[in-house]
Design a protein around this nucleic acid. Structure first.
Length: 431
RNA sequence: UCCGGCGUAGCUCAGCUGGCAGAGCAAGUGGCUGUUAACCACUGGGUCGUAGGUUCGAGUCCUACCGCCGGAGCCA
């Protein structure tokens, strides 16, 4: 039997007899010719069955195959200028592995709800395949960045005894005789890990029971969260900027075919270079007022505000020193202005909004106790966290980057639901 | 949770001031040696989201409910 090859390696097999193991993506026929579009997970190639080249039963087999039937195709790789990949296969034999009938996702248009109900099959479509390939590369590149820069991977737990942010948007579950919550963030655990390793990161799923129904929200999403001991807010902004530039520039190099397939304009991504503009919350507030927005000082920015701020610049923009009142209890106060927190967000261009949130953490035990009380939080579940300030407390900072929003931005998608294999949304737990 | 929109064939949709339920694609049959979401001909396919109401008559008008889509708030 000839060698079994992957379609993305086909150029190395010109004029050779090969076998492709795959699925029928689409089919066109023209009397004595069948054109089978066969995909194998690595790519798609046209396999040409000519009546004059094959036995009558092979030609007959090719004529009534349903979309997504699985098959082994034997034939010769040949260069052809008419092919989008430069090669096609002249078929000599076909083995039908499984005959599929009435595949629901046809080559014509479908609505979002229908496609999401068939997400397990939709993954096979070329566009979804491209998006998830980019996601895989983004995850790889994110890990590479930290692994190659002295960070240690420390996994945070999924079950937690309490909220990280003190909000009521937690998924609750029974944990034997106790109540547990699904994690909202690994951050508090990364602070502990940073005191052990200096530079750490975690990467995993997080859960938020927010009843958000927008193009930027999932109830289950993945976050990569670095945390560094002895790093201040300024260093934190440097790290986020360097990290984002590295990820974007590497992905537009390695995923060029996928981004082309998604018709992504690369120019805005190529402009993602250091330095990013850094503006204070108060300056951002002034900018919004000048632009005609009715933003009130002291309140967080809305989706429209973020877009206005991002559109005022040609690359991601860092907004720092928000009012403490709209930030979590663990944010360190600004020594120069007690109303402000030493925090920062990174807003992606083109209306993609906040992709990074972080800051310098409060490292003084008494201040932290006071802030817990101010936020109405019980001290007991945070005792271990307070311990970190009792035994060698140091200034430290970190942030979280949302993977799905980053994928949506880099791919140029209008909704995060296509950036994760099986999205979990307010109204969707299936498939 | 609030605001707006939509539920008609397997899918995407049309159906006007109430009067015989439609198209394209998919499926089936036949045709074509170079198709690229192939094309051409023919065939089958419906509890018009659900429950009430108005009317001689409701896909169409009214009420309630259910589901989905978009946006807001909140957040990554």
């Amino acid at each position: 039997m000839p060698d079994i090859i992957r379609i993305n390696d086909v150029s190395a097999w010109e004029d050779k007899e090969v076998v492709i193991e795959g699925w029928l993506y689409n089919k066109r026929s023209s009397g004595k010719l069948h054109f089978l579009q066969v995909r194998d997970g690595s790519g798609t190639i046209q396999c040409v069955v000519f009546q004059g080249d094959v036995s009558p039963d092979v030609f007959e087999r090719a004529s009534d195959l349903g979309q997504e039937s699985s098959l082994r195709v034997m034939g010769t790789v040949r260069a052809d200028a008419r092919s989008s990949i430069g090669f096609e296969i002249g078929v000599s034999d076909i083995e039908i592995v499984h005959r599929a009938e009435d595949y629901p996702i046809t080559p014509k248009e479908h609505g979002t709800a229908f496609l999401m109900d068939h997400r397990h099959l939709w993954l096979r479509s070329s566009r979804q395949h491209a998006i998830l390939s980019v996601r895989a590369e983004i995850v790889k590149v994110c890990r590479d960045y930290y692994d190659n820069n002295g960070f240690t991977l420390v996994d945070a737990p999924i079950f937690t005894p309490s909220s990280c942010e003190g909000t009521s948007t937690l998924f609750e579950t029974d944990y034997f005789d106790e109540t547990a919550y699904l994690t909202q963030s690994g951050q508090l655990y990364m602070e502990a890990a940073a005191m052990a390793f200096g530079k750490v990161y975690c990467f995993g799923p997080t859960f938020r029971a927010e009843k958000s129904k927008t193009r930027r929200h999932l109830t289950e999403f993945w976050m990569i969260e670095p945390e560094v001991a002895y790093m201040d807010l300024s260093g934190n902004m440097d790290l986020a900027e360097d990290f984002i530039c590295y990820v974007v520039q590497r992905v537009i190099e390695t995923c060029r075919p996928e981004l082309m397939a998604l018709q992504r304009d690369l120019a805005p991504l190529q402009r993602v270079q250091k330095p990013f503009p850094r503006i204070s919350y108060s300056d951002a507030h002034e900018l919004l007022k000048d632009a005609g927005c009715d933003h009130t000082w002291g309140e967080d920015f809305g989706a429209e505000d973020e877009t206005v701020l991002a559109n005022a610049h040609d690359r991601p923009v860092i907004v720092h020193r928000y009012p403490s009142a709209c930030k979590a209890f663990y944010m360190k106060g600004d020594p120069d202005d007690s109303q402000l927190a030493l925090c920062m967000d990174v807003l992606a261009p083109e209306g993609y909004g906040e992709i990074v949130g972080g800051g310098q953490r409060e490292d003084d035990l008494e201040v932290l106790r006071r802030k817990l009380a101010e936020h109405g939080l019980d001290e007991a579940p945070f005792q271990w966290y307070l311990d970190l300030r009792d035994y060698g407390s140091v200034p430290h900072s970190g942030f979280g980057l949302g993977i799905e929003r980053t994928v949506a931005w880099i791919c140029g998608l209008s909704h995060v639901r296509e950036t994760i294999p099986f999205p979990r949304l307010l109204q969707r737990l299936y498939p």
